[in-house]
Structure formats: structure tokens, C-alpha cells
Write a protein that binds this DNA or RNA. Structure first.
Lengths: 352, 352
DNA sequence: TTGTAGGCGTTATCAT
DNA sequence: ATGATAACGCCTACAA
């Protein structure tokens, strides 16, 4: 049976003190004698009283609740990120209120809810959310923190890996392994992650003579991998020697398509590289070479940004970039130095 | 700059009406003239006013916020479940507050928070949460809904698949395919999912002559797969012909261990079956045969249970069981009918 | 240190 | 239909 919730007044009565005394007993660093606090706590326990955080927030203007907009949870990168973020925030007495943001649908609903609940802040991990939303929240004084996503708008804090650098590392690595006909499988066009990775990859290759890069869009959609594979190895010209996918999920499904639909061997016939270093990338079936995102550091940084903005509303937003590292696994092979043409030069091969 | 939040009083002033009128204008089905409502809405928009849900909840005693305890987000089954649950709940104007519950750690913290925030209900998906917690919440009138988990305690509503039946289907299928030396890789011992699947599998096999079942614990831990594989195929006796893992994640990693560490072929040398039908189970690299959980129906049912218990506090909790189906893929092979009986003997492999 | 009283923003009750 | 007024449960001056 649910008795009527005990309130601070009930506790006060039982303990024979004022209601404010009860409030103080449950407030860190409030001025109250130890004796009285003890009496209050005892009465509270007897009644099973717990301070109502919602009521408290009405006056403190802080709920301790932070909105979290997520798009694609089927990508382990995000589920892992979210889990760790939630864990770390809980340690600081914050909690995440989940918002699923389907396609580019009504991100206005999200806006409404965030405002209506007077959330302390909003974290955006979804690549699909409009930046218009960010602006509207800023002007209401609700801090916005972007994770794995950036925006020109400097009103939002953000944490992201150095995608451009990471992608350039991938490019250099592939070239070093002797690959010359390359391909880039893009993510969703207008996302910051895709733009930066694409730029990093292409720029690093631009200066290398004899390298060709095929560009094809994959939209971060694992279901497009088969058609991507077919297009890359279409009759016309020879297929690429190495393929860089804008994220691991696409890379894994592309590997499957290459191996089981096109009957190509990875890495013997074609090499594949991803980005993120999600757990499945390490599975024996894939052994995907990838550029890792420093997920723990990213989460730590995000927590700092959040706490910073929430506890001192005056503080300026910050943009943070973190570097990961190239994780070399078996999905990339070595090409023999085709001493031939334009520029490519020796690099001896060692193969597994 | 963050102007002071406009309140209903501000709107009332601007619109030249009472504060209660503003409240009514934003309340579905409140008695107010269309004319007045329009005036209020206009003034509200002008000021950027949005009703404060937190303040409202103080008197309605409903926050629209539901706690969600999750354990292992690295298992796609749960991340998918959560995503869909959140989606469906949002459509009903509910939102999920995330609680990560690490090991069997202090589930008391969770309890505290749920109470302190006066959440409308708590959904438990974690297999690790103590049932003591459920009881404490019930007595405070906070409904508890279990997903993919059951408990003796009938005070909680629950949605789960018919694990016992599903596992028995797996057993019958393996027997029908000619397998006789079987193995069960268990999940975490005292979880309802593991208990039920194990029982279903073993019972269905008990009545079949000539079948042996090896039992080994895997703890739903993908990192134990290698040692599990080694133990199963330890020198002594011949290894199993088919292995049923208590969930897909273990099955996938076990397949990797079998293939890449023990150099066994799946399904030619040994068959593997999982439970859940997570997305990766369909990957070409695995083609895992598995028993599916009807995740959409489970989510729908859960939403119903939640809404039911929240909106009519008098309603009794219900326990729901749903059936999935056997999804046959290439990870299971066929053994030739070894017309003989009791024990192991030659059986050549049929392959794809 | 302690109690009193006012207010946080809303909904609910009660007249009108 | 409308407006005053009292909750909702708590925090925080203010005064003592």
C-alpha cells in the first residue's frame, strides 16, 4: 500500500523541530547542530522520508537532469559512449534523460521537452540534430554540449576526436603499405565527422603522386554496404586496393559484402580500414584496422564541460579535440612495390 | 543572454487575463473560451513561455519520467530494446531517466534516486538488480516493470520471452539435425533468462535417447569464450557436435574462438546456436542460428504495462510472456543419421 | 543555531 | 467560463 508520501513537515513534527531544520539536516553544509541533525535523520528514517528533488529544484533551479539526444544506438560506439557518460555523471550526481531522435525529424519536439523540463543541459551525440536547436537553447541559458560532433557556432561546448588528423594517419598508413588505388566510403554528407574525415583523408593523399581515390557515399548505413561493394568493383576499371570507411560499422559490413558476396579476400585482394575502434572491430572474424576514438578521455572531457557550464553559468563554452591512435590489425595487407609508373617507390612487403 | 524565465504570471499580465487562465490555456480539455486561449497562446509565444513541467508535477504528482536501469549496453539486444522503448514512450509523453547499474554493486543508490526524483515508474532490464529493490519501491507506490527478466514476486509487472519454450525449440532442432553430443554454455547463473533457457534445453533433451549434454558456464561474458571453447574441446573426450549458448553475444564470440583459435569449422565440425537474434547474428561472417526475441512486441507490451500502472495506480501488475521463433541460418549443420545409438561414432559432415 | 514567513511555478478548488 | 486563493514540498532570507 502506498501511504501518503512523508514530507519534511511530517518529519519536523515527529522530531519536534521546525520544517526548515529538516531542510537543513538534508542540505550539505547548512548550519545546524549535530544533535539536531541526528534527531531529524532518525525521525526521517523512521518515516522513510526522502527529500523531494523535484520540489527542491523548483527553488534551486537545478534538476540534476541532463538531456541526452541519441540517434543510432545500434552503433556500439554510441552505446558505449552513453553508458560511460551516464556512469561518470552519476558519480557527480547528475542523470541523463534520454531522447531518441529518429531521422532528421521534428527536432523541435526535443527542443520543447528540454525546455519544459528545465533540464540543466543538453548533450547531443546524434549527428542528425539541427544546429538551430542549439542556438535556441543557448538563448534560454541551457548549455549545449556536443559529443563526436562539432559546429561553427561557438556557443556550444564540444568534444570530438581530431578526425582530420586521424583520417590523414589512415591515408599515410595505406600509402606506406603500398596501396595506390584507394577508395573512401563516406558517411552522412553534412555531418562534421564525415566532412572532417573525408578532408583529412583526401588532403593527405593529394600530395602523394600516383594515388587515385574513388569517392562513394555510404551514409553510415550498414545496409548500403552491398551496393557500395558492387559499385566499387563494377566491371569497368579495377577495384580499389584499399578502402577507408568513415566508420567501423560500415567497414565491418563492407568486409562481409566483399568476402561473402563478391568473393574477394580481405586483406589479400583488398584492404579495409574503419574509424572508431568499436569492440566488434577486434573480433577475430574481422580484425579490422581502424583509427580509435579515445572514448574514455572524450567522456571525461564531456563531463568536465557539462559540470563546468552547469555550475558556473558564466563560463564560456569550450571546444575540445582529442587524438586517438591507429590500431593496426589484419584487415590491411601489403602491396608489392610496383616499381612501375609515376612515383610509387619501394616498400618491401611482409605478409601474414 | 538568458532572460529570466517567463512564467505563467508574466503571460497573464501581457494577455490581460488571470494566471489561472494561462494554466487552462495549456491544459488539454480545460474549460476556457477559444478566444481567450488564443490570446494567451499569442502572448505566450511572444514571451517564449513554456509551462514548467517540474512545477506542474509538484501538484499533479506525475513527472512523466520513468527510470530505466540498464546493465550491459554492449549487448545490442539491450541497446535496441532501450532505443525502441524510449521511442515508444516518447510518443506517449513519457521519458526515460537512465541509470547504469554496474556489477551487483550498490543497487541502493538506484533506489534512493528513484525515490528522490519521485519517478513515475522504474523499468529494470538489468539482470543484476536485486529483487529487494523491487519490493521497497512497490511499498512506496512506484510501479516496477521488468523486461527480459522475471521474478517470483508478483508485485512487479514483467515482459519476457518464453525462454523455456524457445530453448526447447533449439533442442528439438539440433536433435532433428542429427546432433547427439550437445553442450550448453550458460549465462549468469541466477538470472531468470539463464535458468529458464537452461531448463528448457535440458528438459527437452532429457527425453531423447542417446543424447549427452555438457554444461559449462559462460556468464554472458564474451571474454570467456576462448576458455569455454578450450574446455569443451579439451583432449579427453570428443568435443560436442553442437553448442547452444544462452545468448547471441556468447555464441558469436564462441564462433570466433572455435574458428580462429581452435581451427574448427562452423558448422562442418561443430554447430553453434544462440538466443536473442541480435543484428550481428545475421552478419555474413557468422550467420548464426538463433531463437529470436520478439523485441517489438516486448516493447509494446512493456509500454502498455507502464502506462497502465502509472495512470491507474490501482491496477494489478501483470506478467507477460511472448514467443519468438527459431531463425535458422548457416551456423548449424546436419549430421548423418548414425543409425547406431548410445554414443559417439563416425559422422561425416554435410556442408554448404 | 533556530524558527517564521515568503516564494519557486504550477494546478485544483471554489466561488462568481 | 473566469478569477482569486490555497495547496504541492522545499529552500532561503530574515529575525531572533
Amino acid at each position: 500500500m502506498s501511504r501518503p508520501e512523508p514530507t519534511s513537515t511530517d518529519v519536523a513534527q515527529l522530531a519536534g523541530v521546525s520544517q526548515s531544520a529538516v531542510s537543513r539536516a538534508f542540505t550539505e553544509g547548512a548550519s545546524i547542530s549535530e544533535a539536531k541533525r541526528a534527531r531529524v535523520i532518525e525521525a526521517a528514517e523512521q518515516l522513510g522520508y526522502r527529500p523531494n528533488l523535484i520540489a527542491r529544484s523548483l527553488i534551486t533551479r537545478r534538476t540534476g537532469i541532463i538531456g541526452l539526444a541519441v540517434g543510432d544506438l545500434s552503433n556500439p560506439f554510441y552505446s558505449q559512449l552513453i553508458y560511460k557518460l551516464s556512469e561518470k555523471l552519476q558519480q557527480r550526481n547528475f542523470h541523463l534523460l534520454l531522447f531518441t531522435v529518429p531521422d532528421r525529424a521534428n527536432s523541435d519536439d526535443l527542443l520543447e521537452d528540454v525546455i519544459n523540463y528545465r533540464l540543466d543541459a543538453l548533450v547531443l551525440t546524434s549527428t542528425e540534430v539541427s544546429s538551430h536547436l542549439g542556438a535556441r537553447l543557448q538563448e534560454r541559458g541551457i548549455p549545449v554540449v556536443l559529443i563526436n560532433r562539432t559546429t561553427e557556432d561557438t556557443a556550444s561546448s564540444s568534444v570530438a576526436s581530431d578526425n582530420e588528423f586521424g583520417a590523414s594517419e589512415v591515408a599515410r598508413f595505406l600509402v606506406k603499405q603500398g596501396h595506390r588505388r584507394l577508395a573512401y566510403v563516406a558517411g552522412i554528407q553534412n555531418t562534421s565527422t564525415n566532412i572532417e574525415r573525408e578532408r583529412g583523408f583526401l588532403r593527405a593523399l593529394a600530395s602523394v603522386a600516383g594515388v587515385t581515390v574513388q569517392h562513394i557515399s555510404g551514409d553510415y548505413d550498414v545496409h548500403k554496404s552491398l551496393s557500395v561493394a558492387r559499385e566499387l568493383f563494377d566491371g569497368e576499371n579495377a577495384g580499389p586496393e584499399a578502402i577507408f570507411c568513415a566508420n567501423d560499422m560500415m567497414a565491418l559490413s563492407l568486409m562481409d559484402a566483399l568476402r561473402y558476396n563478391l568473393n574477394l579476400r580481405v586483406p589479400e585482394d583488398v584492404s579495409v580500414v574503419g574509424y572508431d575502434n568499436i569492440e566488434p572491430a577486434a573480433f577475430s572474424a574481422y580484425q579490422l584496422t581502424t583509427y580509435s576514438q579515445p572514448i574514455d578521455e572524450m567522456v571525461d572531457a564531456a563531463v568536465e564541460l557539462i559540470v563546468e557550464r552547469v555550475s558556473s553559468p558564466g563560463s564560456a563554452p569550450r571546444q575540445i579535440r582529442l587524438r586517438g591512435e591507429l590500431v593496426v590489425r589484419a584487415s590491411v595487407g601489403v602491396r608489392h612495390p610496383s616499381s612501375a609508373d609515376t612515383s610509387a617507390h619501394p616498400s618491401s612487403a611482409a605478409s601474414a
